[in-house]
């Protein structure tokens, strides 16, 4: 994921749509048109207004609304993301995250 995407992304909640914060956990540099650019592999996107969090997994920003994150494969993948980065994810997200945490 490119960092410039954060200039455009907004919270998925229709009653929020706030600008979002980004905390990068894993990235690598790659060459693009002769320049070294940062490519984000894993990161936490969080909403400073409503408190929702979204993962960047394998370079893809997962920006689904709550109802599509609560079960099935998506929930497993996103829970695994929290487990993988639980030393870095803020405690309030791990405990009481929106739409879910690790508890």
């Amino acid at each position: 994921m490119k960092r410039w995407l954060m200039d455009i992304l907004a919270c998925s909640a229709s009653d929020c749509r706030s600008k979002l914060d980004l905390e990068v956990y894993k990235s690598h540099t790659q060459e693009s048109e002769g320049e070294e650019v940062d490519e984000i592999d894993e990161a936490l996107i969080s909403c400073p207004k409503c408190g929702r969090w979204y993962p960047v997994i394998d370079g893809i920003a997962c920006m689904l609304p709550d109802d599509l994150r609560m079960d099935g494969k998506q929930h497993i993948e996103e829970t695994a993301f929290l487990e993988r980065w639980k030393e870095k994810v803020p405690t309030d997200i791990l405990k009481n995250g929106l739409p879910f945490g690790l508890s």
């Binding site: 994921m1 490119k2 995407l5 455009i8 992304l9 907004a10 919270c11 998925s12 229709s14 749509r17 600008k19 790659q30 693009s32 490519e39 997994i57 394998d58 370079g59 893809i60 920003a61 997962c62 920006m63 689904l64 609304p65 599509l68 494969k73 998506q74 993948e77």
Partner: peptide, 29 residues
């Protein structure tokens, strides 16, 4: 909306951002 589809897309080229979201709830202002 399909992460499987996007993983295939991303494997081809990472210059273009790919975002998982449904068409009726696009995470833009």
């Amino acid at each position: 909306i399909s992460n499987g589809m996007l993983q295939k897309a991303y494997e081809k080229q990472s210059q273009i951002p790919f975002v998982q979201a449904p068409a009726d709830c696009i995470p833009f202002s």
